[in-house]
């Protein structure tokens, strides 16, 4: 195991933004490339699964895996990389908490297939043909990885050593995390490599906060103008900042959008969505149940809003395929 430490990057169910985040390191990427040996990176380099299989167990120093776990391929590659790597880092919101793909768990798999392949506008599919894992053709047998019943976060399928949060993680956080890991001075196992306070701590709008925050109305960001320097929550717009770990560089706030929660909760909170619900329901300015119900009903998609990035890792998550031996954590 002489030479530079071996590093792997892999993508599961993601949008490509996390790959972009690595490229966003710009010149720093070259420095990283100097110090390490990138042995696997499907988006950028021509290595195959077989190449990974040739490594000894633990030969790869660190694997950065982004994206949620949606298909059998994701299971398989995660198991493989876990086996070959001394450290596994869940990279980005999807690997960390399940991410936006995790919202698919609000529907079951068959329903999703039908919606996507059967009833999609512009698609004619009277027989409701949905993707199969195996098809025989004249040319031979074609196989595809199966789709899991539910979407999972990475640590729901393999052990994860560290987490880099964000959708996508900002370059400075990625750089610091890589530096820390390569330095050998490792933080406690399971650490999330970002500050452990929530966003309000460094919010550029915090001075505009009134003494007490109450919600008389719940407003949608697309329908109101919030001045650049005003606290969103105080203006009646749901902002996940209070329940979301800081360290993102407040890019959304800079674009005059409220925080959507991609960094996940602080380490003192288990369930980001229910914590936010608990917080905002505490500040509804009414003692009247009917009025509270009316106010609540103005939130059109509460699950999508409160759990935009964390549904699979929420307290209420139940996995139908939890007894499937191919998917059980540690079965690799």
């Amino acid at each position: 195991m002489a030479g530079k430490p071996k590093v792997a990057f892999y993508w599961c169910a993601g949008c490509g933004g996390c790959e972009e985040a690595i490229v966003d390191l710009a010149e720093d990427l070259l420095q990283v490339a100097n110090e390490v040996d990138i042995v696997f990176w499907p988006v950028a380099m021509d290595f195959k699964k077989e190449d990974v299989e040739t490594f000894k167990d633990g030969e790869i120093a660190v694997s950065f895996i982004n994206g949620a776990i949606r298909t059998e391929e994701h299971n398989e590659m995660s198991f493989l990389l876990r086996k070959k790597s001394r450290l596994v880092v869940a990279f980005g919101s999807c690997a960390h908490l399940g991410g936006i793909p995790g919202l698919a768990n609000l529907s079951d798999r068959e329903e999703l297939f039908l919606r996507l392949y059967g009833r999609q506008e512009g698609i004619e599919n009277p027989d409701n043909v949905v993707p199969k894992t195996r098809v025989e053709r004249r040319e031979g047998i074609i196989t595809l990885p199966g789709v899991n019943e539910e979407v999972r976060a990475l640590n729901q399928i393999i052990d994860v050593d560290y987490y880099i949060p964000g959708c996508a993680p900002p370059p400075n956080l990625v750089k610091d995390a890589i530096k820390t890991i390569l330095s050998g001075e490792l933080p406690p196992e399971g650490s999330i490599l970002a500050p452990d306070k929530t966003l309000c701590d460094e919010c550029p709008r915090r001075e505009s906060k009134p003494e007490k925050i109450f919600l008389k109305e719940i407003k949608r960001i697309s329908l109101v103008d919030v001045p650049q320097d005003r606290c969103f929550l105080a203006e009646g717009v749901f902002c996940m900042g209070p329940v979301t770990r800081k360290g993102c560089g407040e890019r959304c706030l800079g674009a005059n959008m409220p925080c959507r929660g991609c960094f996940g909760p602080s380490s003192y909170v288990t369930d980001q969505g229910s914590k936010f619900l608990s917080a905002v329901s505490s500040i509804l300015e009414t003692d009247d149940e009917e009025e509270a119900a009316r106010l609540s009903s103005t939130v059109l998609d509460p699950a999508g809003l409160f759990y935009m990035f964390s549904l699979p890792s929420s307290l209420g998550a139940v996995f139908k395929d939890r007894k499937n031996p191919n998917i059980l954590k540690g079965s690799f």
Partner: peptide, 22 residues
């Protein structure tokens, strides 16, 4: 826990005893 609190201020108005301050 001052190491955790980010000063979001949600608790201030929630307190029925005016015991919280930012």
């Amino acid at each position: 826990d001052e190491d955790v609190c980010s000063g979001c201020g949600i608790c201030i108005g929630v307190c029925p005893y005016e015991a919280r301050e930012l």
